Simulated assay, not measured.
Amino acid sequence: MKLGAFSMSLSVKDITVSKQFYEELGFKVFAGDLEKKYLIMKNENALIGLFQGMFEGNILTFNPGWDENANTMEQFDDIRVIQKQLKSKNIALMTEADENTSGPASLMVMDPDGNVVLLDQHI
């Protein structure tokens, strides 16, 4: 399975404080909107999403079809193909992509330790 770019989506208490902290670690704002309480920050190939008040807990995020610079990959596994593979392995899905569509879609699974994994295809 080609899952695409990986990032950690962090649920933060104060996005401004978190932004400053990660800037001290060498991260720079890559995308997002501070006023809307979300930022994507990047340090080389490492991506961290900061989200205030959008969800509880932290989420491992993969973006099928994107590389770490949000460039469209020539070849990638569509989210619906990945979903079928997960189902064939009897992996329980928390949310599902509509298999009768194409383009942007997402799904969520939970790992054995309760960590949420989001596969979020934007193309």
Score class of each variant (00 low, 15 high):
residue 4 G to Q: 11
residue 5 A to R: 00
residue 6 F to R: 07
residue 6 F to I: 06
residue 6 F to N: 06
residue 7 S to P: 02
residue 9 S to T: 10
residue 9 S to Y: 04
residue 9 S to G: 09
residue 10 L to Q: 09
residue 10 L to T: 10
residue 10 L to D: 02
residue 12 V to I: 04
residue 12 V to Y: 00
residue 12 V to F: 01
residue 13 K to W: 00
residue 14 D to L: 03
residue 14 D to T: 07
residue 15 I to M: 04
residue 15 I to P: 05
residue 16 T to D: 08
residue 16 T to W: 02
residue 17 V to S: 09
residue 17 V to Q: 13
residue 18 S to D: 12
residue 19 K to G: 04
residue 20 Q to L: 14
residue 22 Y to C: 14
residue 25 L to P: 03
residue 25 L to T: 07
residue 26 G to C: 13
residue 26 G to M: 14
residue 30 F to W: 02
residue 32 G to V: 13
residue 32 G to R: 01
residue 32 G to K: 01
residue 33 D to P: 12
residue 33 D to F: 12
residue 34 L to H: 05
residue 35 E to Y: 07
residue 35 E to H: 13
residue 35 E to M: 10
residue 35 E to G: 12
residue 35 E to C: 03
residue 36 K to A: 14
residue 37 K to R: 15
residue 37 K to T: 12
residue 39 L to H: 11
residue 39 L to I: 15
residue 41 M to E: 02
residue 41 M to S: 03
residue 42 K to V: 11
residue 43 N to W: 03
residue 45 N to Y: 08
residue 45 N to A: 10
residue 46 A to V: 15
residue 48 I to V: 15
residue 48 I to H: 02
residue 49 G to S: 08
residue 49 G to F: 00
residue 50 L to S: 03
residue 50 L to A: 07
residue 50 L to G: 01
residue 51 F to E: 10
residue 51 F to P: 00
residue 53 G to A: 08
residue 53 G to I: 10
residue 55 F to Q: 10
residue 55 F to L: 06
residue 57 G to H: 10
residue 57 G to P: 08
residue 57 G to L: 08
residue 59 I to T: 00
residue 60 L to M: 11
residue 61 T to Q: 05
residue 61 T to F: 00
residue 62 F to V: 06
residue 64 P to M: 09
residue 66 W to K: 09
residue 67 D to G: 12
residue 68 E to K: 13
residue 69 N to E: 15
residue 69 N to W: 12
residue 70 A to G: 04
residue 71 N to G: 07
residue 71 N to C: 09
residue 71 N to F: 09
residue 71 N to Q: 15
residue 72 T to W: 11
residue 72 T to A: 11
residue 73 M to E: 14
residue 77 D to Y: 12
residue 77 D to Q: 15
residue 78 D to G: 13
residue 81 V to S: 07
residue 81 V to A: 10
residue 81 V to D: 13
residue 81 V to I: 15
residue 82 I to H: 06
residue 84 K to W: 04
residue 85 Q to I: 09
residue 86 L to K: 13
residue 87 K to Y: 03
residue 88 S to L: 06
residue 89 K to V: 00
residue 90 N to A: 13
residue 91 I to M: 09
residue 91 I to G: 07
residue 92 A to C: 02
residue 94 M to E: 11
residue 95 T to P: 04
residue 95 T to L: 13
residue 96 E to S: 06
residue 96 E to W: 00
residue 96 E to L: 02
residue 96 E to M: 02
residue 98 D to N: 15
residue 98 D to L: 01
residue 98 D to C: 09
residue 99 E to F: 02
residue 101 T to L: 08
residue 101 T to S: 09
residue 101 T to D: 04
residue 103 G to A: 05
residue 103 G to F: 01
residue 105 A to I: 11
residue 105 A to R: 06
residue 106 S to C: 07
residue 106 S to E: 12
residue 108 M to I: 06
residue 109 V to C: 10
residue 109 V to G: 12
residue 109 V to T: 07
residue 109 V to M: 13
residue 109 V to L: 14
residue 110 M to E: 15
residue 110 M to F: 07
residue 113 D to R: 02
residue 113 D to P: 03
residue 113 D to C: 11
residue 113 D to L: 06
residue 113 D to H: 10
residue 114 G to N: 07
residue 114 G to F: 09
residue 115 N to W: 05
residue 117 V to S: 12
residue 117 V to R: 11
residue 117 V to D: 01
residue 118 L to A: 15
residue 119 L to E: 00
residue 119 L to R: 01
residue 119 L to S: 05
residue 121 Q to S: 07
residue 122 H to P: 01
residue 122 H to S: 12
residue 123 I to S: 05
